[in-house]
Design a binder for these strands. Structure first.
Lengths: 211, 211
DNA sequence: AACCTCGTATGACAACCGTCATGCCCACAG
DNA sequence: CTGTGGGCATGACGGTTGTCATACGAGGTT
């Protein structure tokens, strides 16, 4: 198993992805590259930074966004604090402009979507190690075109709390607000997203990665 | 590429999955098994049956549920009609009881969730070829416990049409119904799901795989 | 100091939504 | 041939939601 022994010069990779089958398949794929080696795998975002510490550092952390415990973007931010030398590649199912923006803010060096060809993944890892940043041009354009998240912090809170179908009274309760205030915030969210009701506002905000 | 030549006895597999990176990674994984060979890959549900025809038949079709064009469950049903000898393995991100139920109705021989260990996939394929059915026991129990979909066909239509945040008038328009009828159906959906409004009804129905 | 944005709140009004009773037609099972 | 269940419709009622005007304090900018 430890073929390269103490002189192994391959790129050391930590893989974080919650779906075991996908995680193992990606690990197999990367291990087939002659210059790469997956030295650790985790299935939760909150295990990322600890795993890097336990491994004595890695060259690249490949992080899925959709993970239990801590999402990949927050995990990237934590990693940046605790292991600033580690390069972060964010991998996601959904190419949402807001996700790209947040990934960049969290210090990610690359942003990949899962429907890109597999060969691009290894390529991105090599380019990141060479100091480049790797971002899908279409996605970058979309992120710029969409502009910044127009929702204020509190508006996001209220909209997110409404996403599961809670009624005003419950949202007010959860966030310790008056019911009228909840209505005001939701009204603002609806106008800013251009929606016609809270449900559509939730959908639009999620599509753009604003929640 | 054609290592086994005309005497190849390996299991011939068609892989249908929309995310190219995942699809290629799974293909790599399965091709590493000495007795398996991925002979075709497609990224859309509506290409499944045609691909099997073009390949002159396959032993196993591995179908993701979440696909553009035609979802994996409908693709499985089409495959059953056009190539009844092909074994179908359904693979999905979401282990929803309703999905399992529909997969079985569509004639699937196995139902796998993507967070199972990768080794189980190859194992499932071999067992399916041996004539077994392979289903996660937890999921089977959940499917039985949940009972059948209580929504009538039209109730499903209306609830599905409301999922994107459309208002009653739009739903009525889309389905050529009166606005009052839309309200009646949605009211029924809300009661049958035990929800407090349409948004929650949509969430619950989706969780159970009723849409 | 004047101004802006954000968070919070209230009250009023109109529009929309959820419920219920009731009716009709059609198909299918008993 | 008489229930029973699904599909469709109307009307009425009360509750929820969306909008708007207005207000106040805290924090930051000009």
């Amino acid at each position: 198993m430890n073929a390269g022994s103490d002189q192994d010069r391959r790129i050391r990779i930590l893989l974080a992805e919650d779906q075991a089958m996908i995680r193992e398949a990606l690990a197999t794929l990367l291990d087939l590259e002659p210059d790469m080696r997956v030295v650790g795998q985790v299935g939760r975002g909150d295990q990322v930074a600890d795993a890097v510490t336990a491994l004595g550092g890695v060259d690249v952390a490949l992080l899925d966004i959709e993970m239990p415990g801590l999402d990949g973007l927050s995990a990237a931010a934590e990693l940046r604090r605790r292991h600033p030398e580690t390069k972060v590649v964010v991998l996601t199912t959904f190419g949402r402009p807001g996700f790209l923006r947040r990934a960049m803010e969290a210090g990610a060096a690359a942003f990949m979507v899962k429907d890109a060809p597999a060969a691009r993944l290894a390529e991105a890892i090599r380019r990141v190690l060479a100091g480049e940043r790797v971002i899908d041009p279409d996605l970058a354009a979309a992120a710029l075109a969409d502009g910044v998240n127009p929702l204020t912090g509190r508006e996001r809170d209220v909209l997110a709390a409404s996403a599961d179908g809670s009624v005003n009274a419950e949202i007010a309760d959860k966030l310790c607000l008056s019911e009228g205030t909840v209505r005001n915030y939701l009204s603002a969210c609806i106008q800013k997203t251009g929606a016609r009701n809270r449900a559509e506002a939730v959908r639009i905000a999620q599509e753009k990665g604003w929640l």
